[in-house]
Structures are given as structure tokens and as C-alpha cells.
Simulated scan of single mutants.
Amino acid sequence: MGIKRLDNIAIVVESLDEAISFFELLGMKLHGRAFIEGDFADIAVELEGIKSEIAVLETPDGHSRIELSQYLNPPPIAQQPPAQNALGVHRLMFNVDDIDQTLADLGAEPINGIAQYQETYRLSYLRGPSGIILALAQDI
């Protein structure tokens, strides 16, 4: 009984194409893309008249997946990006070979620089598409 594995983390985004491109730059692979609508979706998500397009991306090691959703109906609710100490999902963290190169590849700026924890790892937070907070960790 209990959990077998984490299947995926779902994130609602403003632009599915932009979010897919961003996560592909991180090295994730597009696993599939589909439109979701009908009674099943309405019941599962507890909204009426759902129509969304989703994309599932997989980490290079094949162990983790992200499901990105762009709602076409009902329209998505735009909110200010959450503060780092807001309740709920805080961030997604990815281990990378080189933080500096990854930030350059993404064309992203760290939220507040790059921190180093002892002689263990370097860590940087950044905002991705739709305000998603990401952390990049580089082992030293």
C-alpha cells in the first residue's frame, strides 16, 4: 500500500509553448502533448467546461516528470508570482552541471545572485515562465 512513486508535478502556465521551450533548455524532454476536456476532466479538476492543452516533460534521468497545463476554458487566473515564503509549492529544484552556463543558456538572471553552501554546492533561485520559482543546484 501507499505511494509507489511521484508521477508528476502539474503547473498551470500562461503559454505552453514558452514553458516547453524553457524546460527543454534545462535538458528536459517532451514526453507528450494533448488536449484535455470532457466529463472526466471536469470531475477530476472540479471545474466545469474544462478545455486545456497539456504537455508532459521528463528529466534526462527519466525519473521525474512535469505536466504543464495551459487552460483555454475556463480562462486561467493571473496572479502575482508568489513570494519565496508564500504557503504552497515553493519551488522546483534541478541539479545542474554548471549554474553559470545554465543561467546563460536560459537567458535568466538569478533572483538574488548565486549562494555557496560550504564546500558542498552552489545554489541559485530564478523565475521561469508564468513566475515559476526554480532553484538550480550545482555540486562542488
Rank of each mutant, 00 (worst) to 15 (best):
F22Y: 11
P82S: 14
E46Y: 08
F35V: 11
I36N: 09
D98Q: 09
N85M: 10
H31F: 12
A86C: 09
G38I: 00
D61R: 10
N85E: 12
I43N: 12
A44L: 11
P60N: 09
F23W: 05
D105H: 00
G27S: 09
I114P: 13
G38N: 06
T102I: 05
R65F: 05
H31K: 11
L103W: 00
I36Q: 10
S64Q: 13
N95G: 13
A44I: 06
E24Y: 01
Q70P: 03
L72W: 14
S52M: 15
D97H: 11
L25D: 09
A55Q: 03
E24F: 00
I111Y: 09
G32L: 04
I50C: 06
S52Y: 08
H31Y: 14
D61G: 11
T102V: 10
E53N: 04
N112R: 15
L87M: 13
A19K: 01
M28E: 08
L57F: 03
D100H: 15
E67F: 06
L106G: 03
G107M: 05
E67L: 07
E46V: 04
E53D: 01
K29E: 12
F23R: 04
Q80M: 10
E67I: 03
A78H: 12
L87H: 15
T102M: 08
Q70D: 08
M93P: 05
F22E: 02
K29F: 02
E18Y: 00
H63Q: 15
I66P: 04
D105W: 00
E48N: 15
I43V: 12
G113V: 10
Q84E: 13
D105S: 03
A41W: 02
A108F: 06
I50S: 07
I43Y: 10
Q79L: 13
E48R: 15
P110D: 12
S52P: 01
E53Y: 00
F40A: 07
A115E: 13
A104C: 07
I20P: 04
G38K: 04
P76K: 00
I111W: 09
E53S: 02
L106H: 03
R91K: 14
G49C: 07
Y71W: 08
Q79S: 13
K29A: 10
E109N: 10
D61A: 08
L106Y: 05
V96D: 03
M93K: 13
V89P: 07
H90L: 14
N112L: 11
Q79N: 12
E46Q: 14
N95A: 14
P82R: 15
E67R: 10
T102W: 00
H90G: 14
E46N: 13
G62P: 06
A41T: 01
A55D: 03
A55I: 01
S52C: 14
L57K: 01
F35N: 13
M28I: 07
L68R: 02
L26Y: 00
G107H: 05
Q80W: 05
H90V: 11
D61C: 09
A86E: 15
S52I: 08
F23Q: 01
V56H: 04
A19F: 02
A115S: 15
D105T: 03
F23D: 00
I66D: 02
Y71C: 05
D42L: 03
P75C: 08
D98K: 06
D98S: 11
E53Q: 11
A104S: 14
Q79A: 12
Y71E: 07
I99F: 06
A104G: 07
P81Y: 06
E37L: 00
A55G: 04
M93Y: 09
